[in-house]
């Protein structure tokens, strides 16, 4: 088991109770998709897993190690083993694509070398390889903000690949992309999952994408898990429970 989350609670300083006792366990090689409305706690859950935020109570175990409240050097080491891709890509806009990809390696570079931006040949080659993997190696020298949304997201994926992640988290990676681009970006997650055996946990909105890529689905509602199962088992009734009575399924191909 690569990840185990037990009875996790997160209460923000504002008083919002975002997670109410969430428990999941993830086997290595899975493509787990988390669905749910905005504000259901999906993002909070991902950020508790790679410890961008600290859970209020409960337990997060990564590779058998309790990481719920670790700090400092230990925490950075864990973070460097978990890749993350965001809805807004979160690239450094004014820097080149290559530099952006290399930032994925910062956890294992010395502070001094990374500030004078002196990178080993190996690191640069690794970055170029990863750009190759997501199919945009020809854009390496261009400024990150000159790329289209889909291309930027692929750069972000390449950046996370620099970490050689055992676990890849994706927080609504296609929510700001058009349908066609969404499919191509999801395709790269699938490729990474199948080719490198990287475990993927992904927050998604579109059920058609969920059915196509997920090996398992979890649905969150108001900070609690209300559904857990295989993607094709989500039927009309479940859909209405997860997204509310008003909801209607939108196809995306």
């Amino acid at each position: 088991m690569i990840l185990e989350v037990k009875n996790l609670h997160k209460i923000y300083n504002s008083g919002t109770h975002a997670l109410k006792g969430v428990s999941i366990s993830v086997e290595a090689g899975e493509f787990l998709v988390i669905i749910g409305l905005s504000g259901s706690g999906k993002s909070t859950l991902l950020r508790c897993i790679n410890r961008l935020i600290e859970p209020t109570s409960g337990k997060v175990k990564f590779l058998g190690k309790d990481i719920t409240h670790i700090k400092g050097e230990e925490l950075r080491k864990v973070k460097s083993q978990i890749g993350m891709v965001f809805q807004q890509f979160n690239l450094i806009k004014r820097r080149s694509v290559l530099t952006n990809v290399i930032t994925g390696k910062l956890g294992s570079l010395s502070t001094f070398n990374s500030i004078i931006e002196k990178f080993d040949k190996e690191v640069i080659n690794e970055a170029l390889n990863n750009l190759e993997t997501v199919g945009i190696s020809e854009k390496a020298k261009e400024r990150a903000d000159s790329l289209s949304g889909g291309q930027q997201q692929r750069v972000a994926i390449a950046r996370s690949l620099m970490q050689n992640p055992k676990l890849l988290l994706a927080d609504e990676p296609v929510a700001s992309l058009d349908p066609a681009t969404s499919n191509s970006v999801m395709h790269y997650f699938e490729k990474i999952n199948k080719d490198f055996g990287t475990t993927v946990i992904c927050n998604l909105h579109f059920l058609s994408l969920v059915r196509r890529y997920a090996t398992r689905v979890i649905a969150l509602k108001a900070g609690e898990i209300i559904y857990e199962g295989l993607p094709h088992e989500i039927d009309e009734t479940w859909f209405k429970t997860i997204y509310g009575e008003e909801a209607e399924e939108v196809e995306i191909r």
Binding site: N50, L52, R76, K77, V78, K79, S80, Q81, I82, G83, M84, F86, Q88, F89, N90, L91, I92, T103, G104, K105, L106, G107, S108, L109, T111, S114, I115, A156, R159, S160, M162, Q163
Partner: peptide
């Protein structure tokens, strides 16, 4: 966003400030 992304790679505080 970029701060979150860079800190998720396991970068330290100085690296986060420099890159994000």
């Amino acid at each position: 966003g970029p701060i979150e992304a860079i800190s998720a790679t396991g970068a330290n505080k100085i690296q986060i400030v420099w890159y994000a």
